[in-house]
Simulated scan of single mutants.
Amino acid sequence: MGNPITVTNLTCHHGGHPAVDTVSLSAAPGQVTALVGANGSGKSTVLMALAGLLRPTSGVISGRPGSIAFVPQRSSAPDHLPITVRQVVAMGRWNLRGPFARLGEDDRAVIDDCLGRVRIHDLASRRLGSLSGGQRQRALVAQGLAQHSELLLLDEPLAGVDVRAAEDIAAAIESERSRGTTIVMATHESTQAERADHVVRLHQGGPTAQ
């Protein structure tokens, strides 16, 4: 894997108002960096900037790798969209191969593996819109895992999941850390934050004293 990702004095605005103000952090390969704070503290904004989905107002992000997987807290796909759980996870391979690529046997093996890692093999043929919040979150995490990215960004991966799902998702994150992936996640779960290598605490868009 590559070099650490460094964020220096990151500032982002939404609608003319500061969402993140002078946040700095360093995230290294094979380590988990946890962004901790209340709702509205700027955690998701930092993740979106790291993913390249939001242009910072100021500040510098250096060392960002070419392959990035972003796992949102909830899917933006409408409930009526006729897409199955397996297709959702397969999108992770399309993100890697390209939208018009034909997935091969190796890709299908990765999809099966990721479904198994978060224990949703039995849901593979179900429509995404029919799932509970926790089941949907597992599917989104599996999609992120399927990308085999150098940087894995997770927005509240344990939100709305039961104890078993939380254990499976935590184990998958630990496996990615062992693989050498750089992991940055937003969380309000104290146990999850305690397992991280580094914790960045945010309050109203800015860093708090450690």
Rank of each mutant, 00 (worst) to 15 (best):
M1W: 06
P4N: 06
P4A: 11
T6N: 07
N9E: 15
N9G: 12
T11V: 06
T11Y: 05
T11A: 08
H13N: 04
H14K: 08
H17N: 12
A19W: 08
S24V: 04
S26N: 10
A27M: 06
A27Q: 10
A28E: 13
A28L: 04
G30L: 12
G30D: 09
V32Q: 12
T33P: 07
A34R: 07
L35Y: 13
V36H: 09
A38G: 03
A38M: 05
K43D: 10
S44P: 02
T45K: 08
L47S: 01
L47T: 05
M48G: 02
A51V: 02
G52D: 04
L53A: 12
L53S: 03
P56R: 09
G59P: 05
G63R: 01
R64Y: 00
S67P: 00
I68H: 06
A69W: 01
Q73C: 02
R74N: 02
S76M: 09
H80R: 12
H80C: 07
P82A: 10
V85G: 02
Q87N: 10
V89H: 08
G92N: 03
G92M: 04
R93H: 03
G98D: 13
F100S: 12
A101N: 07
G104C: 08
D106E: 15
D106N: 12
D107R: 10
D107W: 07
R108W: 13
V110R: 12
I111V: 15
D112W: 05
V118N: 14
I120W: 11
I120E: 12
D122S: 14
R126D: 12
R127S: 11
R127G: 15
R127I: 00
L128W: 10
G129S: 11
S130D: 15
S130M: 14
S132N: 12
G133D: 13
Q135I: 06
R136Q: 14
Q137E: 10
R138T: 09
R138N: 11
A139S: 14
L140H: 08
V141I: 15
Q143E: 07
Q143D: 04
H148I: 01
H148M: 11
D155T: 01
P157R: 08
L158S: 11
A159G: 00
G160F: 11
A165S: 15
A166F: 03
E167R: 14
A171C: 02
I173S: 06
S178L: 13
R179G: 03
G180R: 08
V184R: 05
A186L: 01
S190F: 04
S190R: 13
T191C: 04
A193C: 04
A193T: 04
A193H: 02
R195H: 04
V199P: 03
V199K: 12
V199L: 13
Q204L: 11
P207F: 00
T208L: 11
A209D: 14
Q210D: 10
